[in-house]
């Protein structure tokens, strides 16, 4: 995981993961989101929590990054077993103020797209 020191406008950071049943269970325990479509499944397949889909996004969970805003569109469900790619792109960086775009994709296409703002903390 890349820190915040090398960020610049245009920087793109990417993370890959495969969503597992254990990930969904851990996310349910940590968030409290035990929605039936996550646990029992939808059309026979467990759906990842939105936060799990986002959780691997670089920068978002860094202790030195305060996310001040997020605007997210959930385009399609992510199912257990899906390989997801999470990419965050720095759209602007002015002093410690950051604007970014986040896109999550599976092999079938985009499943989540959004924008956000953040402040880099000392």
């Amino acid at each position: 995981m890349t820190g915040t020191t090398d960020l610049a406008t245009g920087t793109a950071l990417r993370a890959l993961r495969t969503v597992t049943e254990a990930d969904i269970a851990a996310c349910a325990r940590l968030t409290g989101d035990f929605g039936a479509h996550h646990i029992s499944g939808m059309a026979g397949r467990q759906v990842a929590q939105g936060l799990l889909t986002l959780s691997g996004t670089p920068l978002l969970a860094e202790d030195g990054v305060h996310v001040t805003g997020l605007d997210l569109r959930f385009i399609a469900p992510v199912f257990v077993g899906d390989d997801i790619t999470t990419e965050i792109t720095v759209d602007s960086l002015d002093n410690a103020e950051l604007a970014f775009t986040v896109v999550v994709s599976t092999t079938a296409g985009e499943v989540l797209r959004g924008t956000g703002t953040a402040k880099l903390l000392d």
Binding site: F34, H37, V47, G50, L51, L72, F74
Partner: peptide
């Protein structure tokens, strides 16, 4: 999102 899970909510947009 826990509250969303309590009502079996599937989000389309969050701001």
């Amino acid at each position: 999102t826990k509250l969303g899970g309590d009502i079996n909510y599937l989000s389309g947009r969050m701001v």
